[in-house]
Design a protein around this nucleic acid. Sequence first.
DNA 1: GATGAATGAGAGTTCATTCAT
DNA 2: GATGAATGAACTCTCATTCAT
Lengths: 179, 179, 179, 179
Amino acid sequence: MAVLEAAARILETRGLEALTTNAAAERAGVSIGSLYQYFPSKQALVAELARRQQAGLLAALERELQSRPPRSLADGVRRLARIAAQAQLERAALARALDQAEANQPADAELERTNRRIGALVADVLRQFAPTAAPVEVATRDVFAIVRGMTDAAGRAGEDDPAGLAARVTRAVLGLLGP
Amino acid sequence: MAVLEAAARILETRGLEALTTNAAAERAGVSIGSLYQYFPSKQALVAELARRQQAGLLAALERELQSRPPRSLADGVRRLARIAAQAQLERAALARALDQAEANQPADAELERTNRRIGALVADVLRQFAPTAAPVEVATRDVFAIVRGMTDAAGRAGEDDPAGLAARVTRAVLGLLGP
Amino acid sequence: MAVLEAAARILETRGLEALTTNAAAERAGVSIGSLYQYFPSKQALVAELARRQQAGLLAALERELQSRPPRSLADGVRRLARIAAQAQLERAALARALDQAEANQPADAELERTNRRIGALVADVLRQFAPTAAPVEVATRDVFAIVRGMTDAAGRAGEDDPAGLAARVTRAVLGLLGP
Amino acid sequence: MAVLEAAARILETRGLEALTTNAAAERAGVSIGSLYQYFPSKQALVAELARRQQAGLLAALERELQSRPPRSLADGVRRLARIAAQAQLERAALARALDQAEANQPADAELERTNRRIGALVADVLRQFAPTAAPVEVATRDVFAIVRGMTDAAGRAGEDDPAGLAARVTRAVLGLLGP
DNA sequence: GATGAATGAGAGTTCATTCAT
DNA sequence: GATGAATGAACTCTCATTCAT
């Protein structure tokens, strides 16, 4: 969908504040009326963008875990971190803008579900290998916070090496969960 | 300054979107004209708010380090993390709103300087104890990302125990830097 | 015509503001393109709706008068009032919405003609029995105003007894005309 | 207030549909921002217009009744009808547009109150002289419907003689209530 | 004929900022 | 200095209408 790609590019190049419905429509070479035929509101447009982003992440994570079940906590975390870092750095500015948008607007139901599935997937790995003192929900939340925080910062700083980033994220997460 | 406190309270209770110059002036019991005599623009007002927040953090960090120089990396990180967690959880919603605002507006020079001083202070501790493989700037950025990411998430989730949070942050940071 | 009935139902249940061409087409199970093949504009659609409504009223009035010519002013007014009250209360919300629409859009020629025939029919009864001081056109206009005003108000208030309403309308009209 | 008078004139000359906030502001020689400083919404603007109109009517009715209490039903109705006819014919198109607006938007509280006081005033006169079979509320509603219906129609037809109109309204109302 | 994606003028509303008093 | 009425560009969203298929 041209509108989605246009919106993504605006988010990417000029940030959340620059994303207006008119700008998205114009950039997509489409009238504002058409935009509203595809998306009932600006929120819906942004939510769909976020949902696709997260759906891509979820698919990548599932693919990784199904290809080869993690043999240890370190193995699992390392591989999940690599996927997440890759996803975030691919279109770093876009990913950050979407993170911000998610924090601002009440979660779309579909997006919510996708996010919960990602959370469950991570929680599963944690539960399997790391009988942490802290409840799994807290640990999962912390893991997400670390991944998101570090990848956002890396993206903002212009880093573009997912492998190096993933390695650092892995160390931090293992430290958090660690022995 | 009444205007700053008013703006802070709006940010805290109703978020970045609700902070309008008129709302801040009214809440401060001051005319909008006066607000613009103190601050040349809304950006400047928000930047000043962020600067004070960071100045407070900087002062607290300096006080901690000067009271007793860190004996080890673990000792240093643990104490810095506690300060940072405390600062962020004290007025969690405000801190998050400011983080978000900072991400959106081009950095104010004064604020930039304050942030750099905090960075330098942390970098000093790292340099002293952790001859990391990664350059110190990257390590510092990562440490900040972890602290900010985890405390924001904790704040959003309603956590209010700085000690527990600080302990988890410490584990993650030491993991990142660690052997 | 499915479109007309769909438009009528929207008018009835959700009022003039909710009647959009797209809504009418969708409700009729017809494409918006087809709607515009039947009716050149929204105005034309609404006018046709109003015309049918009035045509129904006209037919009922004619049937009543032809079945048994009025024996007196009171008899004539009473019977006409009953017909009018019945027509208006049958689909009260629809009738009111149409009244409102008529007031807003420049009169359609066909609708105008139908309305004039109703006027002539009433004027005939008046002329026959009531040599009023006022010119017949004024009297006719007043009679319509009373009937429409009272039935609209009754409909809005949720009345649904045409007989009682007709009795009151009759008293008012006879008072207007009477000695 | 310039905005109110501008809005009134638009209503008067071009009807409810032509009244847009931009049009009202422009005609008042005021920016759209200023309009919204006086009135928080278009609804509020229209409601205030209606409220003033009705407040004027209420004041006139009270003045009339207090100057000389009605001696009979006929006397009371005649005098109230004259006031109402005068008020409606003074700015007939405006009055009609406001009637229509009132029917479309949920009643403003203040306006509601004014209308209730007018209703109570009329109901008092009815109660005093006309122990009707019908409940007073129905009678009051009918009286209003007759007055409004006849005056609207008269205004639309270009009548401008309040005395003649009032005489006809009086006959109709007395017929309704009559012996 | 029928379809429905596309159009775009225009609606109501917000808010950072200015400037005469 | 302080005030706050005034500004207007910009925003989200609607809907009657068109026209290529």
